[in-house]
Design a protein around this nucleic acid. Sequence first.
DNA 1: AAAAATTTTTAGGTTTGTCTAAATTTATTT
DNA 2: AAATAAATTTAGACAAACCTAAAAATTTTT
Lengths: 224, 224
Amino acid sequence: MNLSTSEENYIKSIYHLQLAADTSTGSVVNTNALAKQLNTKAASVTDMLKKLKTKKLIQYERYYGFKLNEKGTQTALSIIRRHRLWEYFLVSKLGFDWDKVHIIAEELEHVSSMELIKKLDTYLGNPKIDPHGDPIPDVNGRLPVIKQINLFMLPLKKTGIVSSVGNQSPQMLEMLKHYGIGIGSQIKINKVFDFDNSLEIKLVKQPACIISEQVAKNIFVYHD
Amino acid sequence: MNLSTSEENYIKSIYHLQLAADTSTGSVVNTNALAKQLNTKAASVTDMLKKLKTKKLIQYERYYGFKLNEKGTQTALSIIRRHRLWEYFLVSKLGFDWDKVHIIAEELEHVSSMELIKKLDTYLGNPKIDPHGDPIPDVNGRLPVIKQINLFMLPLKKTGIVSSVGNQSPQMLEMLKHYGIGIGSQIKINKVFDFDNSLEIKLVKQPACIISEQVAKNIFVYHD
DNA sequence: AAAAATTTTTAGGTTTGTCTAAATTTATTT
DNA sequence: AAATAAATTTAGACAAACCTAAAAATTTTT
Ligand SMILES: [Mn+2]
Ligand SMILES: [Mn+2]
Ligand SMILES: [Mn+2]
Ligand SMILES: [Mn+2]
């Protein structure tokens, strides 16, 4: 389809606003909200809406409202896929902290090679969840049903993959770095200590260690 | 400085044309050559030259000629650094073939985060040579002096890093893939067979194997 | 249902990077 | 030293993505 960076950003923003909208009322996104989200003016939004309509990515009738059609939705999911895969890469491979990656992924997501995303996905091990706990759409634009659970819910001796963390404060980051726990880490619970609910955990290539209930409560994992 | 993608592409092209130019004649780049390189028209080049002059990246006097000044040269080297690091990443981590990465790196090189390039460099192990055998400028814009040598010149039992390959035909690629040899591979020569000049080599995590003189001649390595 | 407030669109500009065609300047031939 | 050719620049336009200010449509209040 070959969309400009600007067109892609509009599509993505419409998608996110549609999701956030109260669907029960059947309401669609409004021009002002989109302008605000994209840090631009309502007049510019109207200009772009006309273009996106001629490109058959949205339904749009002036004054009436607008929303993504099937093609637009698939386009949005593909951009979001690229965004979240890059975020995953930046955290799990380059060692960025979670709070630094969104802004960089905003640029990387517009790099257009299909082959690149395919290979990146394979390289990362086909992750299903990004560093913020959001699902990564698959190649066909399907959002995975995520069985993300709290670390406490992981059965003993079963391997889970760390998928997100509830608290992203610098203090928490410091602790997790110390333990060597990051997004994508394979983690097992060896033992629960009933005294204080602390857990003995095991990470690959690391000796077992003990984490407090407070830390464990903030770690989410998924497993097959 | 915050340059647009277009400005960056001009700077980079001027740099490459200056290098290719015969410096003995003191000649500088000419407008038509730059237009051709950038797949645009001479008039567009003139427009951009004016802008690059006001941004103090080039010396330029109308009809007289133009060339990068110190600031422009440093800018070019920084873009080339990003380009080549991404190419290295695409080949060594994502498994792309050499002939596919340039076009993707042309997009990735414009992603502007300094921190990203710093971490990418570290992640890749501070490579000095890109998959095409071209030197990667360091953070300070210095081009490394490269001790790239033919594999035959590598002393027995010394580890070399595969830096480039003289023949990039699909046939060669097929062979190298079979042997598990790629850019960045750590390679050692165990033995030279005088009969046909074939080499027994050893790659990390792989059993020793033998390669023909013809293959070895096309492999270049560097070592401390 | 009229008035007021809000939302959305149009009208008319600006900036960036491009283009074609024409005018200048410089280089090369006669 | 002209004349001719080639390279370069200017003039004038265009598309994309913005903008401000004003007009039009819709929604909410009285
Ligand atoms: Mn994000
Ligand atoms: Mn995210
Ligand atoms: Mn290249
Ligand atoms: Mn290269």
